[in-house]
Amino acid sequence: MKGMNARQCRRVRWRLSEVVLGDERLSVADERHAAACLSCQAEIAHYRTIDRAFTALQQEVAPAPPGLVSKVMAGLDRSPIRWFRRPVAVSVSAMSAVAVATTVAVAIRRRHAAA
């Protein structure tokens, strides 16, 4: 019976985050366990604290940098930012360098083999 309680406790504690922070519901049996279990109560208290912190974070606003509106308006005729431009350019150069190095190495090896 003790083992079953421990298993139930682990299972309930695992689900408590989505019960407190989300919209999951416990079964009646699990609810009864959570109400009587100190570990589960401690877990619920932790997640309620996190929930309060999220509510507090919802009120925050980060002011946009000055001049952002002008930058946006000036950029309307340009293409959207091409985030991949640099990495692609870098990877193409790197691949070219590797290809040249491999060709040179193969040529040297063949010359040595022929000699």
């Binding site: 925050e60 606003v61 002011p63 940098p65 952002l68 930012i81």
Partner: peptide, 25 residues
């Protein structure tokens, strides 16, 4: 909407400079 969009971008990328780029984009 600039402040709301910038706030969301900052929360997602965690860098003000990149968040400004994301907002513009």
């Amino acid at each position: 909407h600039q402040h709301g969009v910038f706030t969301l971008a900052l929360r997602l990328v965690n860098d003000r400079e990149v968040a400004a780029d994301v907002t513009q984009d």
